[in-house]
């Protein structure tokens, strides 16, 4: 398991009209292995930019990112990625999607097949291996995406609004699955979300980010993800402690939104 170390990260996008946007400014943090970090903030706060830098899809303008003392220079299988939707390969069966990473690496077929079976069981899709992915509902497709990511045995799993396209009920169920996988695998997870409730419920650590320039505004250490393993999800989300945190974070974000509007808005 590897430490994630982010130091003085800055990202400036040049605009075609000659201007520039400071998507990230001086972002620094350390993340120990096995944490579940959620990133929350109004649009333009740079949370997706940060995730894309961690994934290796973007190269920052300044600063460094290292995972286990190795600098991140591009995408690599040690950092798995789960997208909002549309990232499954619809020309492959569910099983072929899940086994994509191992197959590309040339891992032994029998070993991969056993691994796929076990992973499909873990995400609640036993017996769906031969189905076409486009035959599945949105929630089931995200289960496939999670299994595909896990099959590669990454050190860290990056999730870009993985549940954002799902209906409310499916979303709640999938939150449970994310927590379950996090606990069972002990992997580091970084999850971007637009939902305050989701950020509080899933994160055992939360960064509330602010825009212009994109930065980490406040860091929360949260107890809910740990509690969720023993208590009921609805009760937890209805508890006084949860509601108080939710309102605190919501008003922070509202304040940011109003400042943006005051500056001409988007």
């Amino acid at each position: 398991m590897k430490d994630l170390h982010v130091d003085g990260l800055g990202m400036i996008y040049e605009l075609p009209d000659g201007g520039s946007v400071e998507a990230l400014k001086d972002v620094s943090f350390d993340l120990e292995p096995g944490r579940l970090l959620t990133l929350l903030g109004p649009s333009g706060c740079g949370k997706t930019t940060l995730l894309n830098i961690l994934a290796g899809f973007l190269s920052p303008t300044s600063g460094t990112v290292t995972l286990g003392h190795q600098p991140i220079t591009g995408p690599a299988p040690e950092r798995g990625m789960v997208f909002q939707q549309g990232a499954l390969f619809e020309w492959m069966s569910v099983a072929k999607n899940v086994s994509f990473g191992p197959r590309m690496k040339g891992v032994d077929k029998a070993h991969t097949a056993a691994q796929v079976d076990s992973l499909l069981g873990t995400v609640g899709l036993q017996g769906f291996g031969d189905k076409a992915v486009y035959e599945l509902s949105g929630g089931m497709q995200q289960r496939v995406a999670l299994a595909r990511c896990l099959a590669n045995e990454p050190d860290i799993i990056l999730m870009d609004e993985p549940l954002g396209a799902l209906d409310a009920l499916t979303r709640e169920k999938m939150q449970g699955l994310v927590l379950k996988l996090w606990k069972e695998t002990g992997k580091t997870v970084i999850l971007v979300t637009h939902s305050v409730e989701e950020a509080l419920y899933l994160g055992d650590k939360l960064f509330v980010m602010a825009p212009r320039p994109g930065r980490i505004e406040q860091v929360f250490e949260l107890p809910f993800a740990a509690q969720a393993l023993t208590s009921d999800a609805r009760k937890l989300k209805a508890s006084a402690q949860f509601i108080q945190k939710r309102e605190e974070v919501l008003s922070m974000i509202w304040e940011m939104e109003e400042q943006i509007m005051g500056h001409g808005g988007e």
Binding site: Q84, M104, C149
Partner: peptide, 27 residues
């Protein structure tokens, strides 16, 4: 081809040639 498919394939460890064969061509 959607960027997230290509990104996903890179994150899963595919080489450029593998992405061409298994992602871009079928797409």
């Amino acid at each position: 081809v959607s960027k997230s498919k290509v990104h996903a394939a890179y994150s899963l460890g595919a080489s450029k040639l593998q992405i061409l064969r298994h992602v871009i061509l079928p797409n």
